[in-house]
């Protein structure tokens, strides 16, 4: 039995028909072709599929699509404003926090959720906030640098606003 649902992703509304067991990750990737969110394990171990639902970092592989109806979903594709990158995206490039790039979307989404709540995180705050996002390339050090740098950039951008 399939259900017709509306998903609000990155500000756009999508009408989709899905069986109830379909996860949000599967619908994002296979139906909406938003493949930025990655499938690394499909059981909540790796964090590559992290998206924001109403501002909270959520593992989309453990979330049913039907549960995400009528809520604001943000994926990595929804962060940049045209060509202007989100401070975390910019910081990930500057700090060399991305290597193979497969964990990067999930890492960035977890970082966004952290900075929304805590604009001045300590190194320990960052470690904890990214604790369920695995990376096999970087050893995390440059990722920590990037989140701290992004927090600083965000503050600077806010200060520069009239």
């Amino acid at each position: 039995m399939k259900t017709a649902i509306t998903l609000r992703v990155n500000g756009d509304a999508y009408d989709v028909v899905v069986p109830p067991q379909r996860t949000l990750l599967e619908v994002l990737r296979d139906k909406l072709l938003l493949t930025g969110s990655k499938q690394g394990c499909d059981k909540g171990d790796c964090g590559c599929c992290t998206v924001l639902i109403d501002g909270e970092a959520v593992l989309s592989c453990l979330t049913l699509a039907v549960e995400a109806q009528e809520r604001d979903i943000t994926t990595i594709e929804g962060l940049a404003d045209g060509d202007v990158l989100h401070p975390l995206q910019e910081a990930f490039i500057r700090a060399w926090a991305t290597q193979c790039g497969f964990c990067t979307p999930g890492m960035i989404m977890s970082g966004v959720a952290l900075l929304e709540k805590n604009p001045t995180p300590s190194l320990d705050d960052v470690r904890r906030a990214l604790g369920s996002n695995l990376c096999r390339c970087t050893g995390y050090v440059k990722i920590f640098d990037a989140v701290i740098l992004a927090a600083q950039m965000q503050r600077e951008r806010a200060a520069a606003q009239p």
């Binding site: 990595i76 594709e77 910019e90 990930f92 991305t98 790039g101």
Partner: peptide
């Protein structure tokens, strides 16, 4: 870098 931080870079899956 840009392709990897925006989710635009394609992997096989």
């Amino acid at each position: 870098g840009v392709e990897k931080v925006t989710g635009a870079g394609k992997y096989t899956a």
